[in-house]
């Protein structure tokens, strides 16, 4: 493909993305506005319906993002903007983004972090995207009213872990879960949703940052997904 053709293809993908995201934004904002009670009180039944619509609109957003991410990763089009990053802040932002899904399933997030956490040196957008995918899976596979633990610890790298107490994954199936287009539903069982791109993308995004992703799971007990990302070195302005 010539450079001109490649550019046209990229512009087309951006345009499609823009055209899909714009109406999705107004749909999500409208639902959030109603759910926030800004238009007046809503009945419990109305709230349930609105929350379901909000959940599905977010799911649609995830699918759009997944397809675009896959395209970009495959084309190595992601240009990382690595910078000094406060990991606790990044975690808090990601959890806030999942607020609607957490509330819908009445899931509590318990955060744990080392008292002293050095800065990471990462591309914030891609690591946020990866962490959101891990949180999304943890919520999806947790039962209503359960807890999710999010922890951050530092050694030679910073490790962020997302732990759920859901249905877990058969250890024999674990090697398959990062395979692109693998339906997680086929591994875990029926009744779940998603197109199975999330973990493949999370892995690619973390690896693009020089990190690693790991999943540990026990069937019937839960799953712990961890990403290890590089620290900010002193030469890059890190804490001493």
């Amino acid at each position: 493909m010539s450079i001109k053709e490649e550019k046209l293809k990229e512009d087309f993908i951006d345009l499609i993305s823009h055209e899909m995201r714009t109406p999705l934004t107004t749909i999500q904002w409208t639902l959030e506005y109603f759910l926030g009670g800004f238009t007046g009180e809503i009945s419990p039944l109305q709230r349930d319906y609105l929350k379901m619509a909000e959940k599905d609109s977010r799911r649609l957003g995830v699918i759009i993002d997944d397809l675009i991410d896959i395209y970009r990763i495959q084309s190595a089009k992601i240009n990382l903007k690595k910078e000094k990053t406060d990991i606790l802040r990044l975690i808090n932002d990601c959890i806030l983004m999942m607020k609607g899904d957490l509330e819908l399933k009445r899931i509590t997030v318990v955060k744990r972090a080392s008292t002293y956490l050095p800065y990471a040196y990462i591309d914030q957008q891609s690591i946020s995207d990866a962490l959101i995918k891990l949180l999304d899976n943890a919520i999806k596979f947790s039962c209503t009213g359960k807890e999710i633990r999010v922890s951050a610890a530092a050694a030679d790298r910073i490790t962020i872990s997302v732990e759920d107490y859901g249905c877990g994954i058969d250890p024999k199936m674990l090697p398959r879960i990062f395979k692109k287009f693998e339906q997680l539903t086929r591994i875990i069982g029926p009744g779940r949703q998603g197109i199975g791109l999330g973990l493949s993308i999370a892995k690619a995004l973390v690896e693009l940052n020089g990190g690693e992703i790991k999943i540990e799971s026990k069937k019937g007990e839960g799953t712990k997904a961890s990403i290890a990302i590089p620290l900010l070195k002193n030469s890059e302005g890190g804490r001493t």
Binding site: H18, G61, K77, K81, L96, G100, Q125, S126
Partner: peptide, 29 residues
């Protein structure tokens, strides 16, 4: 903006943006 940035918002920051947000984003956030 709803237009994804291929350079992590570098273009916007280069023009002097204080932040760059891709739609859709939660209103609270």
């Amino acid at each position: 903006t709803a237009m994804p940035s291929r350079d992590g918002g570098k273009k916007f920051f280069g023009l002097g943006a204080a932040d760059f947000i891709l739609k859709p984003i939660k209103l609270d956030l």
